[in-house]
Amino acid sequence: MEPVVHLRGAVTLLGRFPALAGIDLDVAAGEIVLLRGPNGAGKTTLLRCCAGLLPVARGRAVVLGHDLTDRGEARELRRQVGLLGHATGLYDELTVADNVRFWGRAAGATDDAVRTAMSSCGVDGRLADLLVARLSAGQRRRTALACLVARRPRLWLLDEPHAGLDQGGRDLLDELARTAVGAGATVLLSSHELDRAEALADRVVTLVGGTTDGNPQPSPAPTPTQEPVLAP
């Protein structure tokens, strides 16, 4: 079975600087893979590449069957992935409910799916009617997570997802990621909170200087693919 993420010698340039200088990585469907490495190792860049946001200049890069060296295919990929990064993409002037509804509907989610996502992330009830500008950092992260859940992506890309969350929020995030994987999604995350992230991940890949040199390449485990359905 074809891996969800398949990179061979993938190079991405930020200006003239090779932020990724030859990445080899396979992620099988249903896996949770942790990217670790020092600051500047290329974790965020790799996640943005896998989301189709940054072009791959050289090498082979296929995500969910889309060739990332082709700009058109990279755009097609985007509707199937969910990226929770340092920025949340939320509109401060809108309420929590408005934000989740907007991003959910953009991905074709029904009102029921939006409500379920808000409930599963704990941003329903009174919080739903609050303006995002008035939320705490942790509440913002939960709202962004609800937007991601509402979109039901096949590939979850989580960049430092535990940052800013309290203990309950971290537990919730891990539970949602496992639920998504149970429903057929795949998770690629980066984190500096290694104890927690390693407990969540099936496998750890180390990035150093924009490469995956030194990591053994596992053969992707075949797992049945199915449309991800997230339980509340």
Partner: peptide, 14 residues
């Protein structure tokens, strides 16, 4: 442009 809205729009599938 605030808080990564541009990237979120690119990822939205719209």
């Amino acid at each position: 442009s605030a808080d990564g809205g541009r990237d979120a729009l690119r990822l939205s599938g719209l």
